[in-house]
Amino acid sequence: MQHKDIWRGLDQLAARHGLSASGLAKRAGLDPTSFNPSKREGPDGRPRWPTTESLARVLEAVGAGFDDFAALVEGRRGGCAPLIGFAQAGQDGFFDNAGFPVGAGWADVRFPGLGTETVYALQISGDSMEPAYRSGDRIIAAPGAPVKAGDRVVAKTAQGEVMAKVLARKTARLIELASLNPDYPSREFKPSEIAWLARILWASQ
């Protein structure tokens, strides 16, 4: 990650929110000249880097996460995923048999570049995944991605229940799904009782 990449990321973050570099600095409560081109090099021509404090304040001011900023710095385009809440997700008609989103009712949410995966977003409800995920957080899930013990997953049962859990065990006879919140017990299913599992790739908190 080079000096010019960090500044390019800041410029692109500003443009995404309809701001100049000066406007971005001002929104974050910084000196409006903090990100001006003249401040990016010292009098001797050596590069100046933005401080971690200024980066943190900028990200907070525009409601962006560090992953999102890193995507801009690295030149990853990011994209949009269809978004739906867990309460709706449990209803019929929102997923096909492989766990891909179908039908109407989906909104869109932006996320950092994650490669070529086909993904969708779900908005967490409830507290069974605290402290990792809290109600209102958005998670990006990839149906069809390989899953292994220890992965955080979205699971849909044959009865239509959708949940975010940790895959504790998966054998020919048993699928055990654990909650990160110790107040909630693990749940065990026969493989035939699980319609699909989708690995969680990313979360917006």
Rank of each mutant, 00 (worst) to 15 (best):
L167V: 10
G113N: 09
D151P: 15
E176Q: 12
T51C: 05
R77L: 13
E53L: 09
P185V: 13
L174M: 10
L13R: 01
A71P: 05
G115E: 09
G79L: 04
A203T: 10
D5R: 14
L167K: 14
Q2N: 12
G136L: 09
A155P: 00
A98D: 06
V162A: 12
S186G: 11
T116E: 07
V73S: 01
I6T: 09
L114M: 15
D137S: 14
L30A: 12
G105F: 09
I200V: 15
G136V: 04
N36W: 01
R57T: 08
E161G: 02
E130Y: 03
L122E: 00
P191F: 07
L174A: 03
M1D: 11
D96R: 12
G136S: 10
S54L: 03
T116R: 12
R40E: 00
M163N: 01
N181E: 03
I139N: 02
S179M: 01
A98T: 08
A145D: 02
L201W: 11
P143N: 09
A70I: 07
V166E: 15
Y133A: 13
P37M: 04
D5C: 01
C80D: 13
P185D: 05
G103A: 10
D68H: 09
R77T: 14
F95E: 08
A89Y: 03
A145K: 15
Q88H: 14
A28S: 00
G9A: 14
T52L: 14
P191L: 12
I140W: 00
I139S: 03
G93E: 07
E130R: 09
V119L: 13
A64W: 15
G79K: 01
